[in-house]
Design a protein around this nucleic acid. Structure first.
Lengths: 340, 340
DNA sequence: TATTTTTACGCAATCGTTGTCGGGAACCTT
DNA sequence: AAGGTTCCCGACAACGATTGCGTAAAAATA
């Protein structure tokens, strides 16, 4: 893999590397004729500056790292698309990492990002993570970090999230208005902030409408369909079967959906179901799944904007912004008992 | 972001940088005592070698680039997991790029990978790509490339794919055995090799079993559910409605699935449906979707192994390997008319 | 014509690390 | 005691590019 360097051009043209470098950057202290010769040859040889050398010199990479739990999760995939949208326009490249919900992997990814002199980090925390010191260290050393969706409260930096409480409230309220009395909640892992906030929203709605709050109607699942399928099976075979389920994510809802069908229960009449995130697949289920839509693309855009701002104004302390985005209710057949 | 370098250690210990470097690499020409002092301080200061400097020196990065059309596609997400599995074990890091099925983006990604001195490239080609010169250039300069799934026939390098013909044949044969007579095929984009091979498998099965082959029963869709939903709607309203559909991918099948439900047709009795890829979501649909399973994880593993082999034996010309993996039929309710 | 200014370029240091070479000190050999 | 090893370590160059500084020649000025 012989690549063309500035030296090759210098040798060919009997110039010094400094002259070539300056000619390429269109410096005013290089003769017009010389510039033309250099530019022509560079073009012809398809010269590309070596970003590694540049990175070593400037300790900047123009790369930003993104850590998500799983790229297979469409929500994160869309967020990443939003990040790429902004980053690309600003001349940054996005390097994607997966934690696979694993703490060790997350730590490793963070190290890799710091070592490789990435200019900044966007991260949504893994389920397994309870110790945030790998982020804290980086943050304290002045490394730009922005959290999105699964944020870390303990670290004082920009964050982008949705109003999980409100979204959950809306979803639960919707089930109540559809005539549900016994509403269960399949929540996400307890220690994730988003899980807890959605749980609170659910509780608040029940309380406001005078519906019964039963602790054993709240069951916890990991954020994937396989796990929630099993959990929903158990939930639905209980004597006091709920007549409505608010699932903490669409993945969880998809598992519940499958369990409800499997058991031959009618949806929404016997059980109404609503999820959270509004993944593209949800509307294609049978019956189509109701969900609380999150502006995933916008979340990515906002996070990237905040990060790049942080990168471009190093040192300058700005009070951290928490950008809370609005959710919206997508009512579909899985929860719509009365025709609209 | 002050980071510890080898110089800091050298200064502190009154040694030269070369000595420190060798001590850290446990060279035999450094005194045991000196080594111990260096190691202790390095540990205490949390010294990490700068990979950028190393990369500049060795023109190796220990990073391999992966370009896929969309990370949101679970098939590719699983392939990437397989790639990471092997790469990680061999000390390589995987950097993920998305082409978003766009030619320009793909070219840009390739450039980025080459410029950043990635050690190799794993790629599944974008739908929009018809000109392969960006890959050819790289390949001719000796850059290690391995294609997977959506391969490029024109380039003489390792490839990993599944037996698309056989998979399609199996799927079609299955529909025939379930009593379907008028079997349609919703294919992928025509210029993708995998689309064409699956189409051929479909045709061959119809031919072998003496079923009618009608050109207007083959309709082309892009590899996403939204597009195929519309296409399936048209297909199903035609007077000579098919009684079986083989979809070229699960995403396409999901669109067909939604259309069939939407039109109130019974599945599998009025229309049997089978897809290709066996995405995790497929088994959770209602009715569960039959599909041709591809060993996605294994495909990723194999591709990564071949690539790392290529990287570690530079120059040494080895005849390119095409690793063709086997598919397997996952028959579920969407196509199973007779109880098993 | 003598002096200053401008033009146009080269030298060398720098980023962090490694490999080549060279050399002083201590030890061993005869 | 002179010469040969061995052991430890430092100086230097290199990877590719940028940049402050120095300077010869040309141009402008006095």
């Amino acid at each position: 893999m012989k690549t063309i360097t500035i030296k090759d051009i210098a040798r060919e043209l009997n110039l010094s590397t400094s002259t070539v470098s300056r000619a390429l950057r269109d410096s005013s202290e290089i003769g017009i004729e010389t510039k033309a010769r250099v530019l022509e040859l560079a073009q012809r040889l398809d010269y590309n500056p070596n970003p590694v050398a540049l990175s070593l010199l400037s300790s900047q990479s123009h790369d930003i790292g993104v850590i998500v739990p799983e790229i297979a999760n469409p929500f994160f995939a869309i967020v990443i698309a939003g990040i790429e949208d902004v980053a690309f326009a600003q001349g940054y490249h996005v390097v994607i990492y997966q934690s696979h919900e694993d703490y060790e992997r997350e730590v490793l990814n963070v190290k890799h990002i710091a070592n490789r002199r990435k200019d900044g980090l966007l991260v949504s925390i893994a389920t397994a993570t309870t110790d945030y010191s790998h982020f804290k260290n980086l943050h304290e050393r002045g490394f730009p970090i922005v959290f999105f969706d699964r944020i870390c409260e303990e670290i004082d930096t920009h964050k982008v999230l949705v109003d999980d409480f409100e979204g959950a409230y809306l979803a639960t309220e919707h089930l109540i208005k559809q005539g549900c009395d016994r509403i269960a909640h399949v929540s996400g892992p307890d220690h994730l902030l988003i899980s807890r906030r959605r749980l609170h929203g659910y509780r608040a709605a029940l309380l406001d409408y005078g519906k019964p709050i039963q602790d054993d109607w709240v069951v916890s699942s990991s954020y994937d369909a396989k796990n929630s399928l099993e959990i929903a099976r158990k939930l639905l075979t209980r004597p006091d079967r709920p007549d409505g389920i608010f699932a903490s994510s669409d993945n969880i809802a998809i598992g519940c959906h499958a369990a409800i069908i499997e058991m031959g229960l009618s949806m929404p009449d016997e059980i109404a179901l609503i999820g959270f995130s509004d993944l593209p697949i949800s509307a294609l289920l049978n019956p189509p799944l109701s969900s609380v839509a999150q502006p995933a693309f916008e979340m990515g855009r906002s996070a990237a904007e905040l990060l790049i701002n942080l990168i471009k104004n190093p040192g300058k302390y700005t009070t951290p912004i928490s950008n809370v985005l609005k959710t919206s209710l997508m009512a579909r057949k899985s929860s719509l008992r009365k025709p609209v």
